[in-house]
Write a protein that binds this DNA or RNA. Structure first.
Length: 273
DNA sequence: CCGGGCCTGCGG
DNA sequence: CCGCAGGCCCGG
């Protein structure tokens, strides 16, 4: 389940390997129809266009092309962007982008939640939903974060998962942020003190930065563009650790359901408020 | 704020 | 065979 650090890992790899390449052709496979092409645009419009830059917005990958065109990718749960399709996974191939130098970038997805969009730069916010995203965590000052979180009602994890408040956090990092903050995932925002909100901000930045530093979490499906695994699963404090001892207090990590998702926490370090 | 839908693989 | 995995969207 790619979240901000996993998507950032992909984007950094593509920026090194993909910038300057010229698209030859884009092909959809296996009845893949989860492509949204805005009116006046076509896959064929991308042919012959050079890739000028690769950007990330929340969990979206944005390929910046000539002629103000954009190819936007969201991996959702199991989407992958890779230079090779591993043997046995051909049936999950959804699209390919071939370049004039002969290289091919593949989009594969076991489930069919992942999505591609083709549109002009002006249509990106509306067509892809990027326009509904809240600020990027790394462009968010403490002051602005406090303005977003202070006087807001709701459970901490619920709010962290909302892409329209802060972009890029998913289930794994939400649990890790709650743990580092020392707050129960269901802890009410309206009961947090100033120091605790500050702690959430610090934890948010820290957990995402660490995830990027370790090239993402590979617990289920995530791999980089060359098939390499992330390493951050080895550094998680609570996610996936039900029944194991808390590294901080030695009590047993609990699992429950919050916001409809599996939620891991330490009942000792994260008291409910 | 919750739950169902979109999908498929996997483990109990 | 059923429930879980959890990205986002939508309706209630």
């Amino acid at each position: 389940m790619p979240e901000l650090p996993e998507v950032e890992t992909i984007v950094r790899e593509l920026r090194l390997d993909c910038s300057g390449k010229t698209i030859n052709r884009i092909v959809a496979y296996n009845g893949f129809d989860n492509c949204a092409v805005s009116s006046g645009c076509d896959f064929a419009d991308l042919e012959g266009r050079k890739i000028l830059d690769i950007q990330r917005r929340g969990k979206f990958i944005v390929l910046v092309l000539e002629n103000n065109l954009r190819l936007v990718i969201h991996l959702r749960m199991t989407g992958r962007v890779m230079w090779e399709t591993p043997n046995g996974r051909e049936k999950y191939l959804r699209a390919s982008i071939s370049f004039t130098d002969g290289s091919v970038l593949y989009f594969s997805d076991v489930r069919k939640f992942g999505k591609l969009w083709v549109c002009s730069v002006d249509d990106v916010p509306q067509v892809t939903g990027i326009g509904k995203l809240g600020p990027e965590p790394f462009e968010l000052s403490l002051e602005r974060f406090r303005a977003l979180f202070i006087n807001r009602k709701g459970g901490l994890k619920n709010v962290l998962l909302r892409q329209d408040i802060v972009a890029g956090i998913g289930n794994i990092y939400a649990d890790e942020i709650c743990f580092r903050s020392g707050i129960h995932p269901s802890g009410r925002l309206e009961k947090l003190k100033t120091a605790e909100i500050n702690r959430v901000y610090e934890s948010l930045i820290y957990c995402l930065e660490e995830g990027i530093k370790h090239c993402g979490v590979s617990v289920s499906d995530f791999v980089g563009t060359k098939g390499d695994l992330g390493k951050h699963q080895n550094y998680l404090k609570v996610y996936g650790r039900v029944g194991d001892k808390c590294y901080s207090c030695k009590n047993i990590i609990q699992k429950t359901r919050v916001a409809g998702r599996g939620t891991y926490y330490c009942g000792e370090c994260q008291k409910l408020k």
